[in-house]
């Protein structure tokens, strides 16, 4: 199972990948995660790879290999498209953050990204995770709300996910994140 998490540096993609990793471990699988630290975290495009299965060698997912992509931002969802398998699922947070070339006016933010994705026959699950996070009580819980949406579409049981949250989320923030997860899980 190959899962990619894509977003903008600072959106909390690292915690999301830790929850995925914890879930795969609970499912008794071999798991590898590959993340990016450092410069690109400063508001640049960030990508995390999570791979699990009976044997995992390379920690990196290559174009056409992702079973699922969780995109924290629409443009990043669009950018990640070549990585998605033909029958893969693309979970998209309906949030738009302008990159610098758009801010400076050098380029335009592509219009109607979700429609373009759907027109390609891709299974798109769109979700306003910011709203769910606000409802859960902390706008920083966008990441865990999206994990909730993803969990619903994954082959792993709810029980495994509940345990993974306890494993990966600091105790202080567990309750609000459990709420955000549950809102994501029951979304649609």
């Amino acid at each position: 199972m190959n899962i990619m998490i894509v977003g903008v540096g600072g959106q909390g993609t690292l915690l999301a990948s830790r929850i995925l990793g914890a879930a795969a471990l609970r499912a008794g699988k071999q798991v590898k995660l590959s993340e990016v630290h450092g410069m690109s975290q400063r508001g640049g495009s960030v990508v995390t790879y999570v791979k699990y299965g009976d044997r995992v060698d390379s920690p990196v997912i290559e174009p056409g290999e992702a079973d699922m992509i969780i995109a924290f931002e629409e443009l990043e969802a669009y950018r990640s498209l070549p990585y998605l398998k033909k029958d893969g699922v693309l979970i998209v947070n309906t949030q738009k953050t302008n990159p610098m070339p758009v801010i400076t006016g050098a380029m335009e933010y592509p219009e109607n990204i979700l429609d373009k994705l759907t027109a390609k026959g891709i299974r798109v699950v769109a979700c306003d995770a910011l709203r769910l996070a606000k409802e859960a009580g902390n706008i920083k819980a966008v990441n865990v709300a999206l994990i909730g949406v993803m969990a619903k579409n994954s082959p792993l049981s709810k029980e495994i996910w509940d345990g993974a949250l306890v494993d990966a989320v600091p105790a202080k923030f567990l309750e609000v994140n459990q709420k955000a997860f549950s809102l994501g899980y029951n979304h649609q």
Binding site: Y78, K86, P99, V102, Y109
Partner: peptide, 20 residues
């Protein structure tokens, strides 16, 4: 050659790192 996956049919803006 790897199998062709989905393609993005337009030039999309890059997102370089920026000062916070």
């Amino acid at each position: 050659k790897p199998e062709a996956g989905f393609t993005v049919d337009e030039t999309i803006p890059v997102r370089p790192p920026v000062m916070c």
